[in-house]
């Protein structure tokens, strides 16, 4: 069938797959690079044993049904299971201690959420740091990979004033990485002063 589209060389990401570094998307202020243990710079291998790969595109059924978005069977089946998810840390103002959001697109979340839809996709989820409830994770640029236990269902994080379809409770290892990252950024900032 004929098509209008001239297939210009574009970045070949798939819908909500977040498989490649940020392209011409929402402008995001420059943030420090993600720790190498989390940064995704090339295609990942299979996840560790006991961990299932979950992609953002697998969160909701497509095409959309007659009313609202609906979770996929895959998402529902992973409730309480360990998963690996690749996405962008949402730069949220103000940040929420012990939590941040992971999004398929690089976006900034302001606190002025009064009228029109903002840019945070519906599939963005919360990431919870279970052992560091007071930690404010500094912004990280680029794709990151996270593993943890998935809790499916509408989650309202009052401190964030936001809701998400699921929460990823981080494994110990990535949480430690984030803790070190936060200390490192704080140290650098202190030196800069």
């Amino acid at each position: 069938m004929p098509s209008f589209a001239c297939r210009l060389p574009i970045l070949a990401g798939l819908f909500l797959m977040a498989a490649l570094p940020a392209q011409a998307g929402t402008s995001v202020t420059q943030a420090p690079k993600a720790p190498s243990a989390l940064a995704v710079t090339k295609p990942l291998g299979t996840p560790p044993a006991g961990v299932t790969e979950l992609k953002f595109r697998d969160l909701f059924k497509l095409p959309v049904g007659p009313k609202g978005l609906e979770p996929t069977d895959k998402l529902l089946g992973l409730d309480g299971k360990r998963v690996r998810l690749v996405g962008y840390m949402v730069q949220q103002e103000p940040p929420v201690p012990g939590h941040f959001m992971l999004s398929p697109l690089p976006v900034v979340a302001g606190d002025a959420d009064d009228a029109w839809a903002d840019d945070i996709p519906a599939s963005a989820i919360f990431v919870k740091l279970p052992k560091s409830p007071d930690l404010v994770v500094p912004p990280m640029a680029g794709l990151i990979q996270l593993t943890g236990t998935l809790h499916v269902g509408l989650r309202d994080i009052p401190a964030a004033g936001r809701v998400a379809p699921a929460v990823l409770e981080l494994d110990v290892a990535p949480e430690r990485v984030l803790l070190r990252h936060a200390k490192s950024v704080a140290k650098a900032a202190s030196k800069a002063r």
Binding site: G68, M101, S103, D114, I120, A122, V163, A164, P165
Partner: peptide
């Protein structure tokens, strides 16, 4: 939930403020 960001699981944008 009256919260819209990210959108609720069903994609609603309804909010008291508007």
């Amino acid at each position: 939930s009256n919260s819209t960001s990210p959108q609720p699981a069903n994609g609603s944008q309804r909010r008291k403020t508007n």
